[in-house]
Amino acid sequence: MSAESIQFNRSFLYGRIRPYESKPAEPQAVRAAAPKNGAIADVQKAAATVKSAPQAHTKAPILTTSSIAPRMSPAAQSKVLRPAMTLEQAVLQKQATRIDFADKAANWRSEYKTQLKAKRAKLLPNYALFAMAAVVFAVGLAASLHSFRVDTKVTAAATARAAAGPTGVDESKPNNLDKYAVSADLPRIIQIPKLGTKARVLQVGLDTKNAVVAPANIHDAGWYTGSAKPGEAGKATLLDGHVSGPTQPGVFKNIASLRAGDSILLEKGDGTTLTYVVVKTEKVAAENVDMQRALTSVTKGKHGLNLISCTGKFDKQTNTFADRVIVYAEQVN
């Protein structure tokens, strides 16, 4: 290290020597504890000079590296010779450290609040969607339950009404079909092998509303006298019958299940039996029944046999069903 002069001002001396000056009553003990040689002894001497005559001190004593270098290591030299920090500087540095920490803490809190607000802003739409979905689900569930209850009640009521069927009819089963007699050219007995049906055929007309009247007994079929007699070419014989009574099934209970190719037998008063084959079956609303079509043979040039009965929901107030089922058959012999 080259020789250079380092001037110690009072702040340096007081800053460095203050620990030794803190006990003025024991200078001998301090000097006894301190090394008797080296740079530290030189510093003590300089401090004593400054303390004994501070008013006369106009220029700080000069210590040179040439005077202390031979007696100290480079690390010790840098420690002794580096400028000391004044008390004011130490206080300012500490305050600056506190202020810097406070600023960092404030910045962290602000950044945390900003991030928290951003997260909440992102989650808020999801919460709204979840709430809306829950409300929609609850409403849908309530509606489904209500609909289920209503449908159950309606189905039960409709089933009961359909089972009950029209009122004011006879449910007693006729006996001695063999003794039942009609004119030779009129229909007497109808048989539907697929359904196990065998019933009398009575003569019926129209009611006050121009609707074909059904027989009083639910087990009888009715021949509409305004339709053709059995066997008339190009025309059709129209038979109607009940689908059910209050407690029992009627003669045409299951004619809606007839399909093309099923056979129907019609016996006349003279004992002649005519055979018919189903061509088609259709279901229409009661108010949409085409009577002209029902009175016409399904196959042009052949004699037809058409069966009609009630189906669908039963209206207790009107004592009738909402729909009609019509079976169209053609004579094959």
Rank of each mutant, 00 (worst) to 15 (best):
M291I: 09
V204A: 12
S73G: 05
R31M: 03
I218K: 07
H303D: 12
T320F: 02
L123D: 10
A162G: 13
A184G: 09
E330N: 11
K313C: 03
A25V: 05
L202T: 14
A32E: 09
I99S: 05
T114I: 09
N333S: 14
G196R: 15
P27K: 12
F12K: 06
T299E: 13
K302T: 06
Q191I: 12
T167I: 06
T247I: 04
P230N: 14
A105W: 03
M1K: 09
K300G: 03
V80F: 07
A29F: 04
S297V: 03
T237E: 04
Q77D: 02
D262S: 08
A322G: 03
P187H: 04
A163Y: 04
L81R: 02
A3N: 15
T64L: 00
G226K: 15
G231W: 01
A214E: 10
R10K: 13
T114R: 15
A158L: 11
R200V: 00
V154L: 12
V80S: 00
A211D: 13
N319T: 13
T49Q: 13
K23W: 05
I17L: 06
G15K: 05
L87N: 12
L87A: 11
W223N: 08
K268P: 04
A163Q: 10
A75S: 09
R16E: 00
R10Y: 05
A160R: 14
V169D: 07
Y127E: 07
F252I: 00
G196A: 13
L265M: 15
L206F: 08
K59I: 12
T273D: 06
R82M: 10
A60V: 03
V251N: 02
D42R: 14
G234Y: 07
M291V: 11
G312L: 02
N107M: 10
R31S: 06
R324A: 04
A75K: 12
E171N: 10
K23G: 00
L116M: 11
I255Y: 06
Y14V: 08
D262C: 14
N288H: 07
